[in-house]
């Protein structure tokens, strides 16, 4: 077997067309998961009645099981559930018409929420209790103190962790090809099978993932340096 180096470029140009889907599968779950993560983190920190147990269970389950399983269970289970509901209430829902990507997005969002909630929670806990008390002492409410004093610092400190999650989810989005999503890995698979050039196609896909990863890490590094400038003493 030989390697057809020029074909890597051909494959690259074809596969990169699928990059938007990969980015959607990465960014949408992380943004939605971020909102879930904040809510879940606050519920757990303030130990809100009942909700607190649900939040614990949610985080434990989604962090304790592989993401590919979430995708499969939701992909196969959700339509079943919807069909049942539709039948019972005579809604006439056509689950076949629901785009598959929606199931994948839901699964990835739920997983992202659980991971991000842990990051946000530890970020919040890392801000000294003294600052919280100082916020109260100048007359802030719990909510104001959280929004103005604690969260900004918690989030700024969490940027490296967020970056890790982003990179992880960028790579995890490739699982979606198992349920026939044409994202980067799915596209590579197609290019590979059609041309019978597997090595070249997957090298091209690898270059795309790597490139995005390096880009994101670079941006994150600069961003972190900027938003945590307050922490580095001695600069005047």
């Amino acid at each position: 077997m030989t390697i057809d180096i020029p074909f890597i470029w051909v494959a690259f140009k074809e596969i990169i067309k699928a990059l938007p889907i990969t980015l959607i599968l990465t960014i949408v779950p992380l943004l939605a998961g971020f909102l879930i993560g904040i809510v879940v983190a606050l519920v757990r920190i303030y130990k809100l009645k009942y909700l607190y147990r649900i939040a614990n269970g949610y985080v434990s389950f989604f962090r304790g099981t592989p993401i590919i399983m979430h995708i499969m269970v939701i992909y196969f289970g959700f339509p079943l559930l919807l069909d049942q509901i539709s039948l019972r209430f005579d809604l006439g829902l056509q689950t076949n018409n629901i785009p598959i990507i929606l199931f994948v997005l839901i699964a990835l969002t739920l997983a992202a929420g659980s991971y991000l909630s842990e990051i946000i929670r530890s970020g919040i806990i890392s801000v000294s209790n003294g600052q919280l008390e100082a916020a109260y002492s100048v007359g802030m409410t719990k909510f104001q103190a959280m929004i103005r004093i604690i969260l900004p610092q918690a989030l700024a400190q969490s940027i490296p962790n967020f970056t890790n999650i982003f990179v992880g989810f960028l790579h995890t989005s490739s699982i979606a090809f198992l349920v026939s999503q044409k994202e980067v890995t799915g596209a590579a698979n197609i290019v590979a099978s059609v041309n019978l050039k597997f090595l070249e196609a997957f090298i091209a896909a690898g270059i795309i993932y790597w490139g995005i990863t390096i880009l994101v890490e670079g941006i994150s590094f600069l961003l972190e340096k900027k938003v945590t400038a307050y922490n580095r003493g001695g600069v005047s």
Binding site: V127, S128, G130, A134, Y230
Partner: peptide, 8 residues
Amino acid sequence: HYNLFAHK
């Protein structure tokens, strides 16, 4: 321990 807001 002063408890100043570190990010302000």
